[in-house]
């Protein structure tokens, strides 16, 4: 069982343990920034940066802080990191910074970051924490990208990606004919709907995986019980045969 756990596939880590659709963390920013994929990817990169750096710093600082006061210290670390990342974004990608608005500053109360810092980084080494931060950040980026993809195509009909550093359009494909796009997907209503559908899809995937695992466990237990029963029967038969042989040998001796 432990070997199966260690070999958890990449798909599993990104979808089964997905922080956004599986655990419902960091929903506020997910719903707000997914109007275009440029914004979604920009937010994803910011979250990855903050997650990895905060996990590293927290795993270094955690052994030195008393257990009672760790939350304010983590909050201070994460807030400083978010301020720095925000300033870097404001300097190098000003259009992205304006589009994302206050949600860059709200990364500090994004439940994913504080949650991972407390659950993982405070108890593990630097390398493992960094890797965990990267994986969680990638899962978050994948989630917001999926949502933004759906919302942008259905809402505007155009799949467009802008380079945030130079503010030029990298590509712009019109996938739906003009007039066939559904603008409601760019509104909050569309955000809630797309989120509900994706959350239900991930929950269904998790349920099916759990059902498979439970069935496999049941089958394994049944096979084990069968083996045991067969062994016990064999042992019984061997003992009976021995007894019979001994009983036969005695009369032969007596005779």
């Amino acid at each position: 069982m432990s070997e199966e756990k260690k070999k958890k596939s990449l798909i599993d880590e990104l979808i089964y343990d997905n922080p956004v659709f599986g655990l419902y963390l960091g929903i506020c920013s997910c719903l707000a920034v997914t109007t275009t994929i440029t914004n979604a990817l920009g937010m994803g990169v910011a979250v990855i940066a903050v997650l990895v750096l905060s996990n590293i710093l927290v795993s270094l600082v955690a052994p030195l802080t008393p257990d009672e006061i760790h939350i304010p210290v983590y909050i201070a670390i994460i807030a400083s990191l978010v301020t720095i990342v925000g300033m870097v974004m404001q300097a190098y990608t000003p259009s992205l910074y304006d589009a994302l608005g206050a949600f860059i500053d709200l990364i500090v109360v994004n439940c994913i970051i504080l949650g991972r810092a407390e659950a993982f980084a405070s108890k593990n080494g630097v390398a493992a924490s960094a890797r965990d931060g990267l994986m969680m950040g990638l899962a978050y980026t994948l989630s917001v990208f999926a949502m933004a993809f759906i919302r942008q195509i259905l809402g505007t009909g155009v799949l467009a990606l802008k380079n945030p550093l130079t503010d030029t359009t990298l590509f712009s494909l019109r996938l739906l004919p003009v007039g066939f796009d559904i603008p409601i997907f760019t509104t909050p209503t569309g955000a809630f709907l797309v989120f509900a559908i994706l959350a239900a899809a991930v929950t269904a995937y998790k349920n099916s995986k759990d059902a498979k695992a439970a069935a496999a466990e049941k089958a394994r237990k049944a096979a084990e019980a069968k083996e045991k029963a067969a062994k016990a029967a064999a042992a019984k038969a061997a003992a009976a045969a021995k007894k019979a042989a001994a009983a036969q040998a005695e009369p032969a001796k007596e005779a």
């Binding site: 419902y24 509104t187 909050p188 209503t189 569309g190 809630f192 709907l193 989120f195 509900a196 559908i197 959350a199 239900a200 899809a201 929950t203 269904a204 349920n207």
Partner: peptide
């Protein structure tokens, strides 16, 4: 309702309808 929708997913659908109402 289908098991996958119980709990939070259906709450988001309710939120979507309320968003239309409040718009």
């Amino acid at each position: 309702m289908p098991k996958a929708w119980k709990g939070n997913p259906i709450a988001f659908v309710v939120a979507a309808i309320m968003a239309i109402a409040f718009s």
